[in-house]
């Protein structure tokens, strides 16, 4: 049993300071920390805000490689055991900035990674963005999305009577914690696509590459 902390990365794409997207990200980060902690695991929550990475993301699209803080953010996501991703709703979907971050991740980086999806908007009429935009995006990336998505309209930040938002936050965090089950379990999830990093660490012997070129796909 490994003794390292469970690593959670919270990716949020709010643009204003402060933003309701970051507020929701903070709520989710804290809830996940409690939920994972409650299962007796050390947990380390890191926030990745995309706003300060906006220029670097545009540069990455043009140059093909990440610079500075963006490279560090991508590495944090690569090594995360679970993710919380939060976007504002722009034009009936996730924001372009949010999508760009997922566009530049190497294929396979999210394979099998447990994820909570969340979004904010001025009105609850946008809430299906979670299931019509974020969930398919993460499914394509082969992440494992927990059943509860957390949507917060502006009004949710005031309506504390029944604590409906907090309930959804707690439920999503609990679902993520259950999927994580500690670092060892996270590492033993579904088989992942072989990453470039893995290939560098243990190159496929050339005889095997020759066999695969000939159509043999058995490893």
């Amino acid at each position: 049993m490994t003794t390292r902390s469970t690593r959670i990365v919270v990716v949020s794409a709010g643009l204003s300071v402060p933003s309701s997207t970051r507020l929701l990200a903070d709520k989710l980060g804290s809830a996940v920390e409690r939920a994972v902690g409650a299962r007796g695991h050390e947990v380390d929550v890191e926030h990745v805000e995309l706003r300060p990475l906006a220029h670097a993301l545009a540069d990455h699209l043009l140059t093909g490689f990440p610079s500075g803080d963006l490279a560090r953010a991508i590495e944090a996501v690569r090594h995360a055991d679970g993710l919380v991703v939060v976007t504002p709703v722009f034009s009936a979907s996730y924001s372009g900035l949010f999508k760009t971050f997922f566009d530049v991740l190497e294929n396979g980086m999210l394979d099998g990674k447990p994820v909570v999806i969340a979004a904010t908007a001025g009105t609850a009429r946008h809430s299906l963005v979670l299931d019509h935009a974020l969930r398919p995006l993460l499914a394509y990336l082969r992440a494992v999305v927990v059943p509860t998505g957390v949507f917060a309209a502006s009004e949710d930040f005031g309506a504390t009577d029944d604590g409906a938002l907090d309930k959804r936050v707690e439920r999503a965090a609990g679902e993520l914690a259950a999927l994580l089950g500690g670092p060892a379990a996270a590492e033993a999830t579904a088989p992942r696509r072989r990453s470039v990093e893995a290939e560098f660490a243990a190159p496929t012997p050339f005889e095997q590459l020759l066999r695969e070129a000939g159509g043999d796909t058995v490893r």
């Binding site: 470039v196 290939e199 190159p203 496929t204 050339f206 590459l209």
Partner: peptide, 9 residues
């Protein structure tokens, strides 16, 4: 640039 298989080859 970025394909370990070619370095291997």
């Amino acid at each position: 640039i970025r394909s370990p298989e070619i370095a291997e080859q």
